[in-house]
Design a protein around this nucleic acid. Structure first.
Lengths: 231, 231
DNA sequence: TAACTTCTGTTAGAAGTTCTAACACAAGTT
DNA sequence: AACTTGTGTTAGAACTTCTAACAGAAGTTA
């Protein structure tokens, strides 16, 4: 039988370590997350932390896991809060929520979607959390996708939808969702990695322009099926 | 007076070190680039390499610099090769060239546009190389941007164009270029970091869909000026 | 040719890192 | 009270970056 007090203490210790790791991540980047340094800040010696994490990789994987869940929670919260509004405003709300989540903790966003960690492989519950985020997006986007989709892609989208238990959604809608994500990520990714800095362009304006184009649906869902040149 | 033979040897040594560093980067990621290991593979001791690079950061900065120049060269080569073709086909060609460059050396793409290196600051010639890439894009994209642009963004785009000696291009065209880049990067970034793997969706199809939407110009350059919701 | 300077390599070592092994002791269970 | 489990310690191996001091080769100059 497991002791509850010990279990609670263990969880608190793990949380404290992760909190400090997150601070290190923000300050020095992924390479700067040091088990030894975390332990020192906690007032214990380095090897003590190996009772709580298998190693550095395990600790980082945990941070990735937590971040995905946190992002999914934020997305779902936005969708819940915008219930009753029209699709355009719900999309704007989710778009802002997504961007806010990203730019208030750029290091975390990059942990999820930047350069992958060397030996990292996503645990299944992390993939599920990523799916939650995508589902939130699909729930608010205007249903502009209703045309036929190029056949290869059509099959892949159907298979993907089935695997996540949303086999009822038409491929065109799924495609709209995926493309919406890649477009928003395109701007956010460059913003959080500081690429717009030297350009003097406000990424918020670019980002909102993308959001509006998603709402207008003039974003090539028609053209998306044309995969080769004319003629 | 500088000795030419020594200078040449020095350059060769630097190149060899960078070649090995690139191999390490591909195999073990940015964290796996080790000065010591590079030296060992070259048949010298670790400290010897410090005659050629100030340190690890200096070496990595060099890799970033080279990669930007290489990418710009590839973009310009594509633009030169497609001369005479119509805009749509030139855009397709450049799009494919960009993607090919990225997916044949994902680690290098991520070095440029993934998680930034801790203490990295772009040298001026690197920024110039990035500008070359953008200029190539602007040269082939269809001139769909001719409407008015939201005033704040308009000013920022004008200033940006002036700073790179292309003050004659209208802001709407510049905006089209920037947004084209963010969209293509959105797909590529997720592809090279392996995010589409578990989804079972072929990123090439998504990427080409984005390219086609850029060609059709239905990508929200009209909607781009609407930065807030309707009334 | 001899002397001097510069370049390129060496070894030694400081200060880090991750992580394992062996040990000490407290906490919880039987 | 005896036993098991959890949590911490120190010691140490095998790495890392990077500096300091020294050795010798290469190139320059008198």
């Amino acid at each position: 039988m497991v002791n509850a007090r010990r279990e609670r203490y263990r969880e608190e210790t793990r949380d404290e370590a992760k909190r400090i790791a997150l601070a290190q991540l923000a300050e020095h980047g992924p390479e700067g997350v040091s088990v030894n340094a975390i332990a020192k800040r906690m007032g214990v010696t380095g090897p003590a932390l190996y009772r709580y994490f298998k190693g550095r990789d395990d600790l980082l994987t945990e941070l990735v896991r937590d971040a995905w869940h946190d992002l999914a929670d934020a997305a779902e919260a936005s969708v819940a809060a915008s219930e009753g509004l029209e699709s355009a405003d719900r999309t704007r709300a989710l778009g802002e929520a997504f961007r806010t989540w990203a730019i208030t903790q750029p290091h975390r966003y990059l942990l999820l979607l930047g350069t992958p960690l060397p030996g990292y492989h996503a645990p299944t519950d992390t993939i599920a959390a990523a799916h939650r985020t995508m589902s939130a997006l699909l729930r608010v986007l205007p249903p502009n996708g209703d045309g036929p989709v190029e056949s290869t892609l059509d099959g892949q989208l159907r298979a993907w939808a089935r695997s996540r238990g949303e086999g009822d959604l038409p491929p065109a809608v799924l495609l709209t969702g995926v493309r919406a994500f890649t477009r928003l990520h395109g701007v956010l990714s460059l913003e959080v990695s500081g690429q717009f800095g030297p350009m003097g362009i406000d990424p918020a304006l670019l980002y909102r322009a993308e959001v509006e184009s998603l709402i207008l649906g003039d974003s090539g869902t028609r053209g998306s099926t044309r995969l080769s040149g004319p003629g």
